[in-house]
Design a protein around this nucleic acid. Sequence first.
DNA 1: GCACAATAATGCATACTGTGCAATATTTGC
DNA 2: GCAAATATTGCACAGTATGCATTATTGTGC
Lengths: 197, 197
Amino acid sequence: MTPRSTLRDRRRLQTSRDIQRAALTLALRLGYDSVTTEQIAAEAGISPRTFFNYYLNKDAAIIGTAPSFDDDTVAWFRASSGLLLGDLLKALRHLLCHADLDRGMSQLINRLLDQSPELLPIFYGSLKRLGDQIADLAVTRLGEDARPDAELLAQAISHALADTFRIWANDDAMSESSIVDVIAAKLKTLRGFLEQA
Amino acid sequence: MTPRSTLRDRRRLQTSRDIQRAALTLALRLGYDSVTTEQIAAEAGISPRTFFNYYLNKDAAIIGTAPSFDDDTVAWFRASSGLLLGDLLKALRHLLCHADLDRGMSQLINRLLDQSPELLPIFYGSLKRLGDQIADLAVTRLGEDARPDAELLAQAISHALADTFRIWANDDAMSESSIVDVIAAKLKTLRGFLEQA
DNA sequence: GCACAATAATGCATACTGTGCAATATTTGC
DNA sequence: GCAAATATTGCACAGTATGCATTATTGTGC
């Protein structure tokens, strides 16, 4: 996951972030629909064609590249014998800790989503991919038969994460490490609602 | 919600379904990416331009138009003093009962999603809109402050619905009315996982 | 029925998205 | 430095989606 620190890789990472930042700031200033990929490329200092070497489409540039669980975490999870939910949250903690979160970028995303709610599905599409990763993790312990249940749990966790992420982005006093704690609290609330089932 | 039965409205509904059916069958036969909006329009017997009068884009034509809660149901929900989750499920039951579900169409959608998983985000985008409706409903009882919690619950419900819908589509023996019962069972399982929180 | 208003369908022009491919430039490892 | 690997770019092109003007169809009041 952490990039081999060759120059090429560092530049690649830098360019992908330049593009995302350009896409976000332009969309905030001019409105997402009005911004063209050509403008974004110009702002990011690359050619229009190169834009599509980095992101499959305009949407993807807004969202950026989501982190994924590294092999060590997956291996640890498989081997652990703790409670499922607790271990999932621990894995999430690792993920977030290694993801070097950028609060500024997160704020831009949140502001853009406030301003252009039509982009929410794109955001939730990306969130779903994270949910799928969590579901995969859970399935390694529950077995393939339980995939639908694993997905339901994973969706709840990833949705709680999205909520919490928003809170974190807008509260400079909130530490990264408390994100998972807030997620746990939210899931507790959810459990309360489901108690009635 | 149910259309005034003027001829114009019936034709409109018919055409929108023709388009969706055309989009689904062509996508299943040729692959979603290979199918053009022009082909879909031809198959549905309308002009290419008219396609976009019915659906905002190609994606929307695949998913079709999701049902929404009618005013009566919303009013009933507001006034009811039952348990939140139970009442939400009751509202969902009304919705499904009035939605005249088309099992054949649902099967086509499920087969397409199996064949082209890259379409899943589109599907979940539409599911999110249903989730938002459920969240709105819940908020009328919990108050605006609890919206994040309401959304979390609503997402869980709508995800369970999507699961169940798939099961229902592929099982001719399963009745429409049992959909909500299966949803309730799935939420119970979720509660079990969250018990550990 | 008929005429007229409202609504829907269509054709056309046009801007933008996204891809394939070939050519050029940059980085890397030796 | 030099050759191989990789990245960037330009260009051509198919497809998406929108606005607008025109034509066709449906609904309404008489």
